[in-house]
Design a binder for these strands. Sequence first.
RNA 1: GGGAGCAUAGCUCAGUUGGUUCAGAGCAUCUGCCUUACAAGCAGAGGGUCCGCGGUUCGAGCCCGUGUGCUCCCACCA
Length: 876
Amino acid sequence: MELSKNFEHKASEEKWYSYWNEQKYFNSTPDDREPFTIVIPPPNVTGVLHMGHCLNNTIQDVLVRRARMQGKNACWVPGTDHASIATEAKVVQMLREKGIQKASISRDEFLGYAWEWKEKYGGIILQQLKKMGCSLDWERTSFTMDPDYYQSVISVFVDLYNKGFLYRGKRMINWDVKAKTALSDEEVIRKETQQKLYHLRYKIDGLDEHIIIATVRPETIMGDTAICVHPKDERYKHLHGKFAFVPLINRRIPIITDEYVTMEFGTGALKVTPAHDMNDYQLGQKHNLEVVDIFNEDGTLNEDAQILIGEERFEARKKIVIELEEKGHLIKTEDYTSEVGYSERTDAVVEPRLSLQWWVDMKKISGPALNVVMNDDVKFYPAKFKNLYRHWMENIKDWCISRQLWWGHRIPAWYDADGNYVVAATHEDALQQYQTKFGKAPADNTLSQDEDCLDTWFSSWLWPFEVFKGYSNPGNADVQYYYPTNTLVTAPEIIFFWVARMIMAGMEYQKEIPFKEVYFTGIVRDKQGRKMSKSLGNSPDLLELIDKYGADACRFGILIASPAGNDLLWEESSNEQGRNFNNKLWNALKLVKMWEGRTIDHGPQTSGENSFEVEWFDNRLNEAKAEIDQLFKEFRLSEALKTIYSLIWDDFCSWYLEWVKPGFEQPIDAAVYNKTVEFFEELMQLLHPFMPFISEEIYHALKERAAGDDITIKQLSSASKADKQVLQLAIQLKEVITALRDIRVKNQIKPKEAIKLSIETDQQQSYRAIESILAKQLNAESISYVSASVAGTISAVIQKDKFYIATKQAIDTSSQKEQMLKDLEYLKGFLLSVEKKLGNERFVQNARPEVVDIEKKKKADAEAKIKAIEESLASL
RNA sequence: GGGAGCAUAGCUCAGUUGGUUCAGAGCAUCUGCCUUACAAGCAGAGGGUCCGCGGUUCGAGCCCGUGUGCUCCCACCA
């Protein structure tokens, strides 16, 4: 088979991904094996792949593929989230482009367009995951608005209502003026924002005096229904019980007192606008204040504002400031920075608004979910997120779940003309309940359904079991087998949105945790540490990157840069490292393939099977496998990948292959060749979860495979014990080679020039085993053993052994002498500190015996080395 | 305002119960090499007061206190 110059990732990716699918390697059905289940955090159906997905899904794929190779029945469930706000926004925009206003069409018409849009553009992201090589079971693809799923969400709503865990209430909520819907607290992002603090004066009724208040929102003064001061504030004592006039509109409002006011802030006087501020609302309730709502749902001023009607709130602010100034009400303006809430989805400044919404009484449902995390039934990696979780759970607030949108699960509440309501899954059920509850049928025997739909998270919290129809078809074979799932891989940003609520739903509806482990990935940032985002434009197009570097290289690039439990600073060059690694692997393959037709069978007597090279790599491989196992247990995937990278590049390519490489056009021992192919195979197995395409490609290129013999499903053998002595000898061998190569470089001995090497050592036996390797790696034409220094040579001391290099070139001993003196100085200092320690009675008494023994050995070793160097120096 | 985390080589990070063969790795840098798998490479090398200060200990990168600087989360000072 002719190999291409470089690995051709595009052809390989297409070929293998479709092959794996044809073979149904990613499809799972319950059987006797232990399951390993991951449910994908469903991306928005509107979404496109970004670097965060790349990280998150690469990690999941690594875990799933490895589990599959370890004899488990691996099942990774794909799917998408209907993403109520995001999708509705897209559809509204699409309609606008067609010249259609949402308000001008019916709900059903709108939903028709929405489904059409979803079928056409939705779920692109799932196709993109295939490009990344994700081994998802596509036959299990789920969507949060699939018919059964939809019914389950509705049914859960009804059930929670019947249990008294849900209620409808008029409260201050976070209003998104752009999406025109309520938001939950979690959907509000607080950002430090530069603002102005305006000092405004209000005329006091009956006195020739003014009171000055400070506000950042002068456009809301028309909603003021009081001024509040601290009862103990001496400055305002004479105004208690008096009234003031709101500037521009002259509404007469009371001056009230409350200890809530901070005397030191601003002027110590606060305007109270109950309709447009959470705190003011509470103050208003306490003091029975009137509530004047001056905003429309889109954030423009309404008629109750009396002035600036129809203006957008921030435009109104600009205009009213000018007017206030003109009329002498603006006393001063100062710069002020404070936190302002923005909508997570639309980035609009959130408007506090009083409205009637549906709520989940979280205290009633959250209890078991706290315990299972605190006692590690659900284990968090990294564990530091347990604190965060506990804090949120212990201070949990009710969850606003109604959204003024059409795209989503429609709230199953049914109202009569007077606003009396019942909660039921269908109109029929609702009518029946109505009869029971109110003792009569509603007018015309019809009830109208709530216009609103549910928060997307109210459906995605059922994800880990409903993808197996664990709610719609309780106790079915799938949910019994796959649930609880094993590992959830997600970003810490959605710990409250999603993780916590899934645990609650799992405990409530399956009486069991939804997953055993949660692995929180870091956030992908750019080189300057900024979070990657569309608006900043610093998020690269992943598909372009895959096209340019290959999927394997991208997977490598993101994982190698990803420290466990921390954010990662990503830059394109880490993909280059991945691509270079591909290239390295490909070249190693080419080398091995060159040997294929040139093997020679030496027979069992002189077979290379027992050579040091083979024995060493076998042991090194086992040692590394054990390390990798351990790293996986701790979710240290980045380090596991680094270990494999170094095992392949350094140990296999730089050392092993060089050691077994035959001379130019020389044959290779058949047994060594076969072992080399085996090693290569095993390395590809270790690499496969991280870089699936090239590993499968190489696995098949190495030799002819029977049908179905594919690395994707080939089982990993477990690590056997590594022989420490062999490993130690190899370390020594490498050290000798490196040191003597250094001498070659420093003495400018040309690579092609052969040297004669003499070794003075008391472990000749060991050196004989590695003699041929030494000769090859150092270009030594002869190796001999001596018991005294050899005149006219370059000498070096490595460990306790002395080496003499004879060369045709003139020898300059000054640099080696310098090096030896430097070593000597260090060793003497080192020896001194060891002796000092051993001479310290308290050390000898207090330290553990084995520690003392180590120190004694250090002393002996140092002395031996010093002796060897001194002898060498003397002979120079 | 409350809480959490971080600070080790130019950059990104390892360093697991304290033991100077423990100051490491990968990138990057420098010096040789187009050597018959690989210049997307090979062979070598240099580089750090482990943030400052104090303490515990025979011994501290690691434990304790404190200061400084960054990051994140939560919270209703307009």
